[in-house]
């Protein structure tokens, strides 16, 4: 059984019902796989991630989304998260007044439905932060407030590792990162990845893909997947761009 199965999904924008974004998209992701979605700006890449998560900014007009065989098309965002899907944001939010430690405790409590043991959880957070090359004192700082772009992205990967979801969607996690930060993100993904979970990477570039075992690459143009291949497809895009796929 596939982990995530998207059948013929269509979406429009909540604030403009005439704006069709996804136009019949299909996608199957199995446990153990790393999938990559590439595509030009405005093709619907981020919309896909947010559609899976039932973002209020998009309305699904047709099609279905299944997670572990269960129809989650109409499910609420928080329930989808609890079922085991995680998304790393392109522009993560800041939560003033809430320390990273308290934020992570709240997240963990929501996902697991019970408070984590502080004696186990805090050392786990500290060790994971060390692996991700994050400064120790950040744990006491307000969540994402005054963090650089790179630090915010590491914070997303940190959450992924602590939540340990069944499916992680990484939306443009590599954009705006320097070489070292990209290496750290790749390290994080490899720490997370095993045979039972899966990753869906949405990206512009192939930089993040180099250290990963990519199974499938999909080209998304104008709300539809127009081609699927292996890692070599990403390299081809890197060389030639999307011109062959744009009508």
């Amino acid at each position: 059984m596939s982990l995530l199965s998207i059948k013929n999904i269509h979406t429009i924008a909540e604030d403009d019902h005439n704006k069709k974004i996804l136009k019949g998209l299909d996608l199957e992701i199995n446990p153990g796989e790393i999938h990559v979605i590439m595509g030009p700006n405005g093709s619907g890449k981020s919309t896909l991630a947010n559609t899976i998560f039932s973002s209020p900014r998009y309305i699904k007009t047709e099609g279905n989304i299944y997670f572990e065989g269960e129809d989650i098309t109409e499910e609420s965002t928080d329930k989808i998260a609890k079922k085991g899907i995680f998304m790393s944001f392109q522009t993560p939010e800041e939560i003033p007044g809430v320390t990273l430690a308290n934020y992570l405790k709240s997240v963990k409590t929501s996902i697991d439905g019970k408070k984590p043991s502080i004696y186990e959880f805090i050392p786990q957070v500290e060790n994971t932060m060390k692996e991700l090359d994050m400064k120790e004192e950040y744990i006491k700082r307000e969540f994402n407030v005054g963090f650089s772009g790179g630090e915010k992205k590491k914070n997303e990967i940190l959450q992924m590792l602590l939540i340990n979801p069944k499916l992680a969607i990484l939306d443009e996690t590599d954009s705006g990162l320097d070489v070292d930060a990209i290496k750290t993100v790749v390290k994080g993904i490899n720490m997370y990845k095993n045979d039972n979970n899966a990753v869906l990477i949405i990206t512009h570039s192939t930089k993040i893909l180099k250290g990963l075992n990519v199974d499938k690459v999909h080209i998304l143009v104008d709300g539809k997947i127009v081609k699927t291949g292996d890692y070599s497809l990403a390299l081809e895009i890197d060389e030639n761009g999307y011109k062959d796929y744009i009508k």
Binding site: I80, F86, E93, I95
Partner: peptide, 22 residues
């Protein structure tokens, strides 16, 4: 911000509560 916290498993009320407490 509420949506972000909802993707972390929080209900709307829990999300608002965290923001207000902060």
């Amino acid at each position: 911000a509420i949506y972000y916290l909802e993707t972390r498993g929080m209900s709307e009320l829990e999300a608002k509560s965290l923001i207000v407490r902060g």
